[in-house]
Simulated assay, not measured.
Amino acid sequence: MDRKYKLTYFNIRGLAEPIRWMFKMRNVDFEDERINLAQWPEERNRFSKHVGQLPILLIDDKIELSQVHTVMRYVARELGFNGETEYEEMRADEATELIYDLRLCAVAHKDCYTTDNPDIVRHTIFRDFKAEKNISKKVIMRKRLLVDHFPLYFAKFAQFLEDSGGEYLAGPNITYADLAVANFLDVCESHVNPDILNDFPTLKALKEEIFDIPEIAEWVAQTNTANATGA
């Protein structure tokens, strides 16, 4: 039976973009409801029963799932992106949790950026950092990310690739972790430093492979066009 899906998230890539990619790659129709960041203080009351958190996945107009990793793993299981062995599932989970760790590392430097949405900053942290106009405020966070955090975590991702044979993070099959890591790396290149993958050629190759997937390339092009026209 075909299921009906509605994904509600902010009007950004953020944490939920890999979920959108999985739907597109499997040609699964879904309603992509986007909440403008400026409207969130008013809109959040709609989601009070989910402790005011996004994303929310509505399934068949009946079941609502909250929490990004819960939603991501559910969609991965339903659409075949969760790995084919227990080992692949574990590795995919681990890689995705490491990404969240990195976001929290950035959020911890709260004096290095300004945000209009403090209650959702973990979703918007790199966007807020890029938009920060005070250059001196950025110094500490950029240094910690580029010197301490990124090399440590990126080396871990590179080791996953080596252990799995070099194509995907969890094994011979693409998983939601590959999508999540590729999305994260691209965000960091765009918002922190375009050279962050110079010392990690295998991660750069993985990111490029993911973004070359036709469905993802088309989705990214459409999203960029919509953002450029204010849609």
Rank of each mutant, 00 (worst) to 15 (best):
E33F: 15
R34C: 05
R34N: 05
R34K: 10
I35R: 09
I35P: 01
N36G: 04
N36E: 11
N36Y: 03
L37R: 09
L37I: 13
L37K: 08
A38E: 15
A38Q: 15
W40Q: 03
P41C: 09
R44I: 10
N45H: 14
N45R: 14
N45G: 12
R46E: 11
R46Q: 14
F47W: 09
F47I: 00
F47K: 01
F47P: 00
F47C: 00
S48A: 12
S48F: 00
K49E: 14
K49S: 14
H50Q: 14
V51S: 09
V51M: 07
V51E: 04
G52T: 03
G52S: 08
L54T: 02
L54Y: 08
P55G: 03
P55H: 06
P55E: 09
I56Y: 02
I56H: 03
L57W: 02
L57D: 06
L57G: 06
L58T: 15
I59E: 13
D60H: 13
D60N: 15
D60R: 14
D61H: 13
D61V: 07
D61L: 08
D61K: 10
I63Q: 14
I63E: 15
I63T: 15
E64N: 10
E64Y: 10
E64H: 10
L65D: 02
L65F: 04
L65R: 02
L65E: 03
S66E: 10
S66D: 11
S66W: 05
Q67V: 07
Q67H: 10
V68A: 06
V68R: 00
H69C: 08
H69S: 10
T70V: 14
T70W: 01
T70R: 05
T70L: 07
T70D: 09
T70F: 04
V71R: 00
M72F: 04
R73P: 02
R73H: 10
Y74H: 10
Y74L: 10
V75S: 04
V75L: 01
A76R: 01
R77W: 07
R77C: 12
R77M: 11
E78S: 12
G80N: 01
F81Y: 13
F81A: 03
N82A: 04
G83D: 07
E84P: 06
E84M: 14
T85L: 07
T85N: 11
T85K: 07
E86P: 09
Y87W: 12
Y87E: 13
Y87I: 14
E88P: 02
